[in-house]
Simulated assay, not measured.
Amino acid sequence: MTGTVTEEQDSPPVPRARALLRRFLGNKSAVIGAVLLLVILVVTMASPWLAPYGPAQIDIANRVSGPTPQHWLGTDMLGRDTLSRLMHGGRVSLAAAALAVAIATGIGLPLGLLGGYFGGAVDWVLDRAADILMSFPAIVLTIAIIAATGPGLITAMVSLGIVYAPRMYRVVRGSAMGVRREVYIEASTSIGTPHLTILRKRVLPNILPTVLIQLSFLLASALLAEVTVSLLGLGALPPTASWGSMLGQAFQDMRTNPALAVYPGIAIAIATLCFNLVGDGLRDAFGRETRKAS
């Protein structure tokens, strides 16, 4: 029936997956970052089967050794294989960063949707709370929470997730406020569609590209934060291996074996760069779709 506004009408076109993939693959830097990141994830997650030694396995006869046929990257002060610890440590560091980002998303995403969509007093209260949390440097606030609750990797990442939640909230809130003014939202509201349904079927799918881009950048930031807290002895505790704890132990042995700090440092730099490259590629791909739609 013509002239009747339905919930399906006036909805923006959903970006086609093939077109987005083609744009992403057209960005060589993003593709290189994605491939390297995939390799890092596969190697680190499969470290229990791929690593030649256990992360805490000691070889007293080859303490502080350089690269050898038995230990490709050498050993540390306790005779532990550096390559094995690097692989296992990456698994811990990446999983910890993912946990922090998952917590930040679990808090910031629904609150951002509520604040951006409804506005008013709800938005004012949430926005002031975000302002307070974001007024402190993230790593300083994380260390303060850890100091109050006790050290440990899980505690550190939960604290970091809480600290990062306002960042996700701000991104989601701004995107939701923009979508709220669209014609298809007004059309859905005019025909009596419940707000929860509008949020789930109209608002969330259209801010999802922005959320995915923010996730990539947050993962890079969370990885560096995990390294920092573990380097300070507040994250991964012995004998657990992580890239941050490996750096902390390497600094103690810098005079005897400075190469121990090089390997985790390179791994951290490459992983962080890959997350940022993928984020840039996603932003470029989705950004082109947005400009075309507008």
Rank of each mutant, 00 (worst) to 15 (best):
V5K: 15
V14L: 10
V14H: 15
R22I: 11
L25M: 15
G26T: 10
A30I: 04
G33A: 12
V35R: 01
L36H: 07
L36P: 02
L37A: 10
V39R: 00
I40P: 05
L41C: 03
V43T: 05
A46H: 04
G54A: 03
I58C: 03
R63E: 06
S65T: 12
G74Y: 03
T75K: 00
R85Y: 05
V92C: 09
L94N: 04
A97P: 00
I103Y: 03
G106H: 09
G108S: 14
L113W: 10
G116K: 06
A121R: 13
V122Q: 09
W124S: 12
D131P: 01
F136D: 10
F136N: 06
I145Q: 05
A148R: 01
A156Q: 06
S159F: 14
R173M: 12
G174N: 02
G174P: 05
A176Q: 05
A187V: 00
G192L: 14
T193E: 13
L204S: 06
P205W: 05
L208H: 04
T210R: 14
Q214R: 05
S216R: 02
F217K: 04
A222E: 11
L224F: 08
L224N: 01
S230K: 09
S230I: 04
L231D: 05
T240K: 00
A250P: 05
M254C: 01
N257S: 12
V262Q: 05
Y263F: 14
Y263S: 08
Y263T: 00
A267R: 02
I268N: 07
I270G: 02
T272G: 08
T290Q: 13
